[in-house]
């Protein structure tokens, strides 16, 4: 497998905003590649260098509340985190005005040719499993990236395959879309519980906890791990209640013994009592180390959930070439 190229770009990116040339004078839009938390994302070419980039566009309507908190946090946190090889690189920031006179903010990112959602979908369409070693390499990079983000005092809060960008050739994986991220204070304070895409949402968040921390991201990582192995989402709920029931059905209904304090969470009710299913039944195709790591990532009690930092030391990753990734 090819070595990941994570060399910094030769030209130091500027962060100038406003004034000068309009963003669209500097970049040529090639195609729309998706939607971010608060705007469209385009594949584009930098006219001066021919470099292919991703342009994330957001409107700042005059009559509204100014810069959206999501945009403010994303840009600010990316400026701090974007030096890591496992976090997508913010190359530039441009501010311009569109034809209607609205202020537009363009975030210019390095271009990655796919994301983990498309990558998994490709294998599923061909009725193939992702090779075990590829799963391991992707998971190692994900844990490394999440560990870096957490080590800077930041929660991502929206980890899912769609937000993990990839390079098909090198198998490089990078964390993207920090629109729902936030810096945390230690000890962690009260935050909103309306975070995370439903399928990857941790049970403490679903149960209404307003005090949550880095384990919410690890739960998402566990769900992604299972999805890489099976090509199917582990808990595909379509409402908060259905999501909880999905989890309880597979992992067993939690109780005070396995998760002290669960009964005191705001959304706790009397739920049907299910016994836990063996992970090897739910996620066939892993070795014993893989199941052990997955189990630690999907621990109900947040304090017992493995950290990304500790996960990197797990025997499951023993045969990964750590100098390359």
């Amino acid at each position: 497998m090819a070595t990941i190229q994570n060399k910094p770009t030769p030209t130091a990116p500027s962060t100038t905003t406003g004034g000068g040339l309009r963003a669209m004078d500097l970049y040529e839009k090639l195609e729309k590649v998706g939607e971010g938390t608060y705007g469209k994302v385009y594949k584009a070419r930098e006219k001066a260098t021919g470099r292919i980039v991703a342009l994330k566009k957001t409107r700042l309507p005059e009559d509204d509340e100014g810069v959206p908190p999501t945009a403010l946090r994303e840009v600010s946190l990316l400026r701090m985190l974007s030096q890591d090889p496992h976090v997508v690189r913010l190359l530039d920031l441009k501010q311009g005005v569109n034809k209607e006179g609205q202020t537009i903010l363009y975030l210019v990112f390095e271009y990655m040719d796919t994301d983990l959602k498309k990558f998994i979908r490709g294998y599923r369409a061909n009725h193939e499993k992702i090779p075990a070693q590829t799963v391991k390499i992707l998971m190692y990079q994900l844990c490394k990236g999440v560990g870096f983000v957490h080590g800077r005092g930041v929660l991502h809060r929206d980890l899912k395959p769609h937000n993990l960008l990839m390079d098909r050739k090198t198998m490089a994986l990078k964390i993207a879309d920090l629109g729902l991220s936030r810096a945390i204070t230690v000890p962690v304070k009260k935050y909103t519980h309306e975070i995370l895409t439903l399928w990857y949402r941790a049970p403490e968040v679903l149960l209404g906890a307003t005090h949550y921390s880095t384990p919410v991201d690890i739960w998402s990582v566990g769900c992604i791990f299972a999805e890489l192995v099976t090509n199917q989402p582990l808990f595909p709920g379509d409402s908060e209640l259905q999501q909880l029931l999905h989890i309880f059905k597979l992992l067993g209904t939690p109780n005070e013994e396995m998760w002290p304090g669960v009964g005191k969470l705001p959304n706790w009710h009397v739920y049907p009592q299910w016994k836990p299913t063996k992970l090897s039944t739910l996620v066939p195709g892993l070795d014993s180390d893989g199941y052990d790591l997955l189990e630690k990532m999907l621990a109900y009690e947040p304090g017992k959930r493995v950290s990304a930092k500790k996960a990197l030391e797990h025997p499951y990753f023993n045969d990964v070439n750590k100098e390359v990734y």
Partner: peptide, 19 residues
């Protein structure tokens, strides 16, 4: 704080080194 996820015990030293 080993079992207290809100204390971010695994990362607290790293976070403050960074600060």
């Amino acid at each position: 704080d080993a079992g207290n996820s809100l204390a971010v015990a695994d990362y607290v030293d790293e976070i403050y080194r960074f600060y």
